[in-house]
Design a binder for these strands. Structure first.
Lengths: 110, 110
DNA sequence: CTGATAGTTAAGCAACTACTTGACTGTCCC
DNA sequence: GGGACAGTCAAGTAGTTGCTTAACTATCAG
């Protein structure tokens, strides 16, 4: 999980993911719009591969990269879980604020 | 955006967020379950605050921290957008594979 | 074989991260 | 006032990240 968010914490890598969401690409196609050397792109690619966001396969001399949406989903799920939990808490707070004052138990304040 | 994912790329900080999702807490309450010094917790807290995931307010000598769900939502949205785009592409690929071969235009292959 | 293409490896470097310890500043309560 | 409590500042350090350049290895086309 650390690795996934770490991978997404970089604009370049998010750009690469967005590119790959649109379909598979070779390393050079991936590098083409990026203002950096090929080795730099390779390093980003390795980060994306290490956390499972991207799978790559080399055939002949070209390595083809494609996105692996399951891991993307995992991150989304974690965030979604936090949000829904928070919304639940809001609901319960709302209930508490709108429900009529419960009768104080007899003897609760002598 | 970089900052948000960067902030979430750390287990300690995710733990802090999960703790705060359950309700506001003071710095020491936040630090209590964590196996590290208070200054370390403060630094994590500053990261969370810098990216807007958490807001804090000091009253008297205690600083109260609470989660800011809008930023959490932003990250979730980015991920959701990627996923839905990918699903769209899958759909269109499915259409392409299942639709009948289009008639070749007259003269397209002499 | 030769040259161009596609990718890979390795070394080096500046900047950043996640801590630590130690000293310090306020605030609260008696 | 004086001690305890809650938090803060500063400096130092080991390890990581994001890049670079230079040299190298395969693969393909003619």
């Amino acid at each position: 999980m650390d690795r996934v968010f770490q991978a997404l914490a970089d604009q370049t890598r998010r750009d690469m993911v967005e590119r790959l969401i649109g379909g598979p690409a070779s390393v050079s196609q991936l590098a083409e719009p990026l203002a950096m050397s090929l080795p730099a792109v390779m390093q980003h690619l390795r980060v994306l591969e290490a956390c499972g966001l991207v799978r790559t396969e080399k055939v002949g001399r070209v390595r083809t990269c494609r996105v692996e949406p399951t891991v993307l989903r995992m991150a989304e799920d974690w965030l979604g879980r936090q949000r829904t939990t928070w919304e639940h808490h809001l609901d319960r707070l709302g209930d508490f604020l709108t429900e009529p004052q419960p009768k104080p138990e007899p003897g609760s304040r002598p």
